[in-house]
């Protein structure tokens, strides 16, 4: 798990590191799925786990890959791509044994494991650089996008952890 606070490269390049450090910053755990670059607020992430054995659950909603055993606690594993409607071609081959990384997130009572392809760094981003999402991002259901942040080379999509972990029907909270 990487929790070392790396400074945002983009910020360094601009050379106003000091100013940025003064300003309010938020930290994000980042990860990749296909060509997209995602982030989650660090407070919403409990831990990152390389590979956990996913036990498939028949008849589960499509976005649920199965359940995993995290040190005796059984978590629902949600496939990020399917969840947010990411329409990339390789998802077709989901059945192939592919190594996923688990981002354990959500509330501590009932965390979920979000399956992502590759884990990135933890980034500090000045709050002012964070913007509301555009009207549309190709191939992604905006419901799951909280905010975005334009980086030099790419767009960081900050996911809305609430909508990701909530059950579809938004019915009674477990408890």
């Amino acid at each position: 798990m990487k929790r070392t606070n790396e400074t945002l490269p983009a910020v360094e390049k601009k050379g106003n590191v000091v100013e940025m450090a003064m300003a309010d910053t938020s930290q994000f755990v980042t990860f990749y799925y296909d060509k997209h670059f995602f982030g989650l607020p660090i407070d919403d992430v409990i831990e990152i786990n390389r590979t956990l054995d996913v036990t498939p659950v028949p008849m589960a909603p499509e976005y649920v890959s199965g359940v995993v055993n995290l040190r005796g606690q059984i978590l629902t594993a949600i496939d990020l791509a399917t969840r947010i409607g990411l329409s990339c071609k390789n998802i077709e081959k989901k059945n192939e044994k592919k190594e996923y990384n688990n981002v354990i997130m959500g509330n501590r009572e009932e965390p979920i494991s979000l399956l992502v392809e590759r884990i990135g760094d933890v980034m500090s981003i000045p709050t002012e650089k964070i913007e509301p999402p555009p009207d549309m991002i190709e191939g992604i259901d905006l419901k799951y996008v909280g905010q975005v942040c334009k980086l030099d080379s790419k767009l960081l999509i900050i996911l809305n952890s609430k909508t990701i972990e909530n059950t579809e029907k938004k019915k009674k909270n477990a408890g």
Partner: peptide
């Protein structure tokens, strides 16, 4: 118990851990 995403599936009552650390429904 099963997580809230899976609770509604009528055929499962819960989950359990097997001797090898894997989950069984």
């Amino acid at each position: 118990p099963l997580g809230s995403h899976l609770k509604h599936i009528p055929v499962f009552a819960g989950t359990t851990l097997m001797g090898d650390g894997r989950v069984a429904l």
